[in-house]
């Protein structure tokens, strides 16, 4: 992106803080094996060790596993699922929304009724059902979260396409004989991207929350340590050992907050008002 964009983004203090936190979380995920080479599932000490004990910085859980190791390794699952399921949701949502908005008429009607079908079922319930049917694994989690998160993106993309479709530069593309896919991909899509990017960044945050909630219910990938799983496993001893759910909880809170801040910063930086003033990009 260009310099103007960066300046506008950087003028939002919160967005910078969010970005910094996000960078830390990403580094944590990348270097998890360096920070904690042993599996987060292995029992390293006595159970119920409070934080700042000898060998476990954030305490140990009911089976003597290191909470800190769990938090660090858990960031991998959270980020992975958050990103991939958002990308999948973005793909489904933008494709359907673009088709509905560009073609209008019965195509629009059909796609939007289909979208409403998904919107009338509560997100979380649908996700639980889908994961339960497909047996919990990282793939079924990504699929389930993507399937429940695309409708808002589809609606947004449809709105953008609907308004851009009748803009004169799009009409000009039609009169100069551009093909329909080219008009959709090269003329309209780049101009509708700003709000979609912002919404997608917030979808990542929701996806992380959804993944945690599913893991909390025991529907996470059984082979991967995740924040939701840690909280779920510790819920029965919440009053005796607060740290077991507190630290993964904080991790979720901070990550989601950071993503929201970045999303807001993107919103400011990509604000379509700038384009309306004739700045263009």
């Amino acid at each position: 992106m260009n310099r103007d964009f960066w300046n506008a983004f950087a003028s939002n203090r919160g967005a910078l803080v969010g970005l910094a936190i996000l960078v830390v979380v990403v580094l944590m995920a990348i270097f998890a094996d360096v920070l904690y080479p042993r599996s987060p599932w292995s029992m390293v000490t006595a159970p119920f060790q409070p934080p700042l004990s000898d060998d476990v910085l954030l305490g140990s859980d009911t089976l003597g596993r290191d909470i800190a190791a769990g938090v660090v390794h858990g960031s991998r699952v959270s980020l992975l699922i958050g990103l991939i399921s958002s990308l999948v949701a973005l793909f489904i949502g933008v494709t359907l929304g673009a088709l509905a908005g560009y073609f209008g008429g019965w195509v629009d009607d059909a796609i939007m009724r289909f979208t409403e079908l998904f919107q009338t079922i509560p997100n979380f319930v649908l996700a639980v059902v889908l994961v339960a049917i497909f047996t919990p694994s990282i793939y079924s989690l990504v699929a389930a979260i993507a399937i429940v998160s695309w409708p808002p993106l589809a609606r947004l993309a449809r709105g953008e396409f609907l308004s851009l479709r009748s803009r004169e530069f799009v009409l000009a593309a039609v009169t100069t004989g551009q093909s329909t896919p080219r008009i959709i991909l090269r003329e309209i899509l780049p101009n509708s991207l700003s709000p979609i990017i912002v919404a997608a960044s917030l979808t990542v945050a929701t996806a992380i929350l959804l993944e945690s909630a599913l893991s909390f219910l025991g529907l996470g990938d059984p082979n991967m340590m995740s924040w939701g799983y840690q909280i779920g496993a510790a819920r029965t001893v919440l009053r005796q050992a607060w740290w077991m759910s507190f630290f993964p909880g904080i991790a979720i809170l901070i990550t989601v907050l950071a993503i929201n801040l970045v999303g807001e910063g993107l919103n400011d930086a990509l604000n379509p008002k700038l384009a309306r003033k004739g700045r263009g990009r």
């Binding site: 803009r167 004169e168 530069f169 009409l171 000009a172 593309a173 009169t175 100069t176 004989g177 003329e187 780049p190 101009n191 384009a275 004739g278 263009g280 990009r281």
Partner: peptide, 21 residues
């Protein structure tokens, strides 16, 4: 499509008729 070449249009609003990107 072949006739598109022969009939071309100039639009009203010069601010909306050029793709800003």
């Amino acid at each position: 499509r072949p006739f598109r070449k022969d009939v071309q249009m100039v639009f009203q609003d010069p601010y909306a008729s050029l793709n800003p990107r």
